[in-house]
Simulated assay, not measured.
Amino acid sequence: MLSNFLSNTFKIQAIINKTLMKSKDIDNAMHLFSSITNKSNYMYTVMFKGLITNNMAEKVLDLFDEMKIEPDQFTLSTLFNACAVLNNNRAMKIGKELLAKIPENYRNDNITSTSAIDMLMKFGDVESAERIFRSMKTKNIITYGAMVKGYVGNEMFEKALDLFEQIHLSLTNAIYAIVFNACAKLCNDRAMKIGKKLLAKMPENYRNDNITSNSAIDMLMKFGDVESAERIFRSIKAKDIITYGAMVKGN
């Protein structure tokens, strides 16, 4: 019986995650989910992620209100993500209550803490995000990215560059794009120096990433360096509408 139950549960999880959520059949996913007697944190996380992907973050909070078990660090991270996406009064209340009650051992989990930072930055609560960031023993590049992006989102561009200059880890293409955006917004001597230096050091494989290249084009156009922007534009193999938009807007 136990073997059958586990087998059925895994099958249900697979159907919800790989079939119903991907085909946007939310009603049947919810119905199937409600048929599970002993719901695990993993099962809730699967549902929450599927709902967020389908732009139904409000339903995540509805489902969370019905939860009879304590969320683990993975479920908490997904809940923080839902609250960040919603960014309304209800989300702020639930997000901050969850954060206040978070077990101490989860605070050292990078995924959970990074999700909390992103959520707080979306709420405009920069001070609390900074407090969590400082308390983290081991910061990874995604954590730094959440902070830098948060500063940019809160129009604290100088702080974004201050923190960027403290990073001593390998940069991802997302970090390049975020810093290029910060430099474009500031558009002062410091921003021009950092932006151009960063662009010169950017690995070749990142140059084929449209988001990174589009951000670089936008930054260079803001700097008035049309020639360099055109050079990047010509080098992009598969140009999208945003690439063309960045060039047209810059010109």
Results as ranks from 00 to 15, higher is better:
56 M>N: 14
132 I>L: 15
58 E>M: 13
133 F>E: 03
8 N>Y: 07
19 T>K: 08
100 A>H: 12
134 R>C: 10
1 M>L: 10
187 C>E: 05
180 F>V: 04
196 K>P: 03
115 S>H: 04
247 M>Q: 06
9 T>H: 08
62 D>F: 10
121 M>N: 06
59 K>E: 10
172 T>C: 11
250 G>M: 11
10 F>L: 13
89 N>D: 14
249 K>R: 13
234 R>N: 14
47 M>C: 12
64 F>T: 04
71 P>I: 01
110 N>K: 11
230 E>I: 08
20 L>V: 08
240 D>Y: 04
195 G>S: 04
224 G>E: 04
164 F>T: 02
168 H>W: 10
217 I>A: 01
76 L>K: 07
251 N>L: 15
235 S>F: 10
199 L>A: 05
89 N>E: 15
69 I>K: 11
117 I>D: 00
173 N>C: 13
50 G>P: 04
38 N>G: 11
112 T>N: 09
31 H>E: 12
48 F>P: 00
161 L>A: 03
6 L>K: 10
169 L>F: 09
211 I>Q: 08
202 M>A: 10
237 K>G: 08
25 D>A: 07
66 E>P: 02
134 R>M: 12
99 L>G: 01
227 E>K: 15
193 K>M: 13
37 T>K: 12
47 M>I: 14
235 S>R: 05
178 I>E: 00
124 G>A: 14
166 Q>S: 14
212 T>K: 01
11 K>W: 13
210 N>H: 08
111 I>E: 11
51 L>P: 00
71 P>W: 02
232 I>E: 00
144 Y>S: 03
161 L>P: 00
243 T>F: 05
62 D>Y: 06
202 M>W: 06
154 N>R: 04
249 K>F: 11
231 R>P: 02
79 L>E: 00
3 S>M: 08
155 E>C: 12
240 D>A: 09
32 L>R: 08
199 L>G: 00
248 V>P: 03
39 K>A: 06
50 G>N: 01
65 D>Q: 12
138 T>G: 08
137 K>S: 14
177 A>R: 00
134 R>W: 06
31 H>W: 09
75 T>A: 15
102 I>F: 11
69 I>C: 09
130 E>H: 07
101 K>Y: 09
59 K>W: 09
13 Q>L: 10
194 I>T: 02
172 T>E: 15
9 T>K: 13
84 A>I: 02
132 I>S: 04
3 S>V: 15
29 A>V: 04
166 Q>Y: 10
24 K>G: 10
186 L>W: 02
214 N>I: 03
189 D>K: 09
244 Y>L: 09
142 I>T: 11
136 M>S: 05
27 D>K: 14
70 E>K: 12
50 G>D: 01
52 I>N: 00
189 D>L: 14
241 I>E: 09
148 V>M: 01
192 M>G: 07
39 K>G: 05
18 K>P: 05
250 G>S: 03
220 L>K: 02
65 D>Y: 06
192 M>T: 06
18 K>Q: 15
175 I>G: 01
181 N>R: 03
65 D>E: 14
242 I>D: 03
150 G>C: 05
19 T>L: 12
5 F>S: 09
156 M>P: 02
58 E>W: 06
140 N>E: 14
160 A>V: 05
60 V>Q: 00
195 G>D: 02
45 T>F: 05
222 K>F: 01
